[in-house]
Simulated scan of single mutants.
Amino acid sequence: MILVTGGTGLVGSHLLYKLATTTKNIRAIYRRTHKLESVKKVFSYYTEDFETLFDSIDWVETDLNDLPTLSEAFNNVTHVYHCAAFVSFEPDKYHQLRKINIQGTANIVNLCVANNVQKLCYVSSIAAIGHNKTNDIISETTEWNPEYDNSVYAITKYGAEIEVWRGTQEGVDAVIVNPGIILGPGYWNGGGSGSLIKQVYKGFSHYTHGVTAYVDVWDVVAIMQKLMQSDIKNERFILISDNLSFKEFQDKTAKILGVAPAKKEASKFILEMGWRLDWLNHKLFGKRRRLSKQVAKTARTKTFYDNSKIKNALGFEFSAIDNSLETVCGYFMKDQRKS
Results as ranks from 00 to 15, higher is better:
L16D: 00
H95I: 06
G130N: 01
R276A: 03
T69D: 07
T5C: 04
I162C: 13
T78G: 15
W165V: 02
H79D: 12
Q225Y: 08
A262K: 02
C112H: 03
A260P: 12
Y331L: 13
F249E: 14
A114Q: 11
L284G: 06
Y305H: 02
R288S: 06
A84G: 04
A174N: 02
V60W: 08
H82T: 13
K18C: 05
N132H: 01
L111Y: 03
T105D: 03
V217W: 01
F249P: 02
F249V: 11
T78N: 14
W59M: 09
L70R: 01
I108N: 04
K334P: 09
S71D: 13
A262I: 15
L3S: 04
S88P: 11
R32T: 02
E170M: 15
M228D: 01
H206K: 05
K255T: 06
Y153I: 08
S44R: 10
D242E: 10
G258R: 14
H209I: 15
G184I: 12
W165Y: 15
K283P: 07
I29T: 13
V295T: 15
R276L: 00
K311M: 15
I126P: 00
V328S: 12
D49Y: 09
G190H: 12
I100M: 11
G330Y: 04
K18F: 10
V152S: 00
S125L: 07
N107P: 10
F269S: 11
L325Q: 05
G194R: 02
S71C: 13
F318Y: 01
L15P: 00
L111W: 00
I26M: 08
S124C: 09
A127W: 03
L70K: 00
A28W: 01
L280Y: 00
W279T: 02
A84P: 04
G286N: 09
A20K: 04
K302G: 10
L53W: 03
L36T: 05
F285P: 01
L36E: 10
E326L: 13
G12T: 13
K119W: 09
Y45L: 13
F86M: 02
V200K: 01
A222L: 05
T141W: 08
I223H: 03
K18V: 06
S292C: 09
G186N: 11
N132I: 04
E161D: 13
R98Y: 13
L36S: 09
T52R: 06
H209K: 15
V113E: 03
Y45W: 14
R27L: 12
I57L: 11
M228R: 13
Y214S: 03
